[in-house]
């Protein structure tokens, strides 16, 4: 809050998100703009590098991982490469990967993988974008390792007793993505139609891929 923020109000108006909004900057926005200006002024970064990274960040959405899943469903050789090294498999589809290493986990009728980061919010952002609110909640982080079947039931997934539930605590340097089971009735669909059947939560292990309507 700046000193000349003098009009009295009860904070019902929106604070600015752009530097050219005709309102005061929040403290964090002011810091961000100052830091950016200093990095450019000192020649540590230039504006083009910052813009290039913003463009990379904007490519980070769950659609990237859904593309990998769709390719893996139609191309067994690609699936094998993805299971061996998911980072290389992402790069193969021109996905800019900023993680050190990515691991793909295949869900089958016998094994259901689900991902959590108990310590914070480690997440494969290159493939899935920013994590959803539930993923960073203390409830999800603490309960998924302790009672995963109950947590999955709350997401609408009731898994048979014979299916092993394997929880992956993404607590350090590796990042994970789930390869969900291909739904029935999807024979002959194009890769882009298949990718549209893969919701974000299926890539975390908290949903199944959708069946075509």
């Amino acid at each position: 809050m700046t000193a000349d923020h003098s009009h009295s109000h009860d904070h019902t108006h929106p604070h600015p998100v752009n530097e050219d909004d005709d309102m005061d900057l929040t403290e964090h926005e002011a810091k961000f703009l100052a830091l950016k200006a200093m990095l450019i002024e000192q020649g540590i970064l230039d504006a083009a590098e910052i813009q290039a990274r913003v463009e990379v960040n904007e490519l980070k959405t769950p659609h990237q991982a859904a593309r990998m899943v769709a390719r893996a469903w139609v191309d067994p050789a690609y699936k094998a490469r993805m299971m061996a090294d998911a980072k290389q498999a992402a790069l193969e589809l021109d996905i800019p990967v900023t993680e050190a290493a990515l691991v793909a986990l295949e869900n089958t009728p016998d094994l259901h993988n689900v991902i959590v980061c108990t310590l914070c919010s480690c997440y494969p952002r290159s493939l899935l974008g920013e994590p959803p609110a539930f993923y960073v909640s203390k409830a999800y982080r603490s309960r998924t390792v302790r009672e995963p079947r109950r947590v999955l039931r709350e997401f609408g997934l009731t898994l048979p007793e014979e299916t092993e539930i394997r929880v992956h605590d993404s607590n350090a340097d590796l990042r994970y993505v789930v390869l969900p089971q291909r739904p029935d009735g999807t024979e002959g669909l194009s890769e882009s139609d298949l990718a549209a059947l893969v919701p974000r939560d299926a890539l975390i292990g908290c949903a199944f891929a959708k069946t075509p309507s």
Binding site: E147, R149, R150, E164, I165, V167
Partner: peptide
Amino acid sequence: QRDIWPDYPGCEADTLEIE
């Protein structure tokens, strides 16, 4: 899971992987 939580409420075969 049974080795982590002796009263684990799921199935015998359930597992957890961590780095």
